[in-house]
Amino acid sequence: MEINIMHGEQLVFALNGRLDTVTSNELLDAFAKEEVKEEMVIVDMKDLEYISSAGLRALLAMKKELVQKGKSFEVHNLNSVCKEVFKVTGFVNILTVK
């Protein structure tokens, strides 16, 4: 999985590939390394093939940490499979999806 990180008004993690058991730690590692100055963090799933429950867990962990710091977290550009995953697990209610 490729992760492109863009700083600006928001901190964007653009994912390419699959966010699953094997790769979710890559996202968490990348997130841990970044100093979050921005008020908002966005995970862009435009080029993501799919996300599995392990990926959801990684997103949840990111959100928990940001909320503690008083920052907001959003997930953007879900494809239909990812949307289905978010829906069936109830993550649409937990995370801000756009």
Binding site: R18, D20, E49, Y50, S52, N79, V85
Partner: peptide, 8 residues
């Protein structure tokens, strides 16, 4: 994608 998620 569904198959990939199921495998994972």
């Amino acid at each position: 994608a569904q198959a990939g998620i199921i495998v994972d």
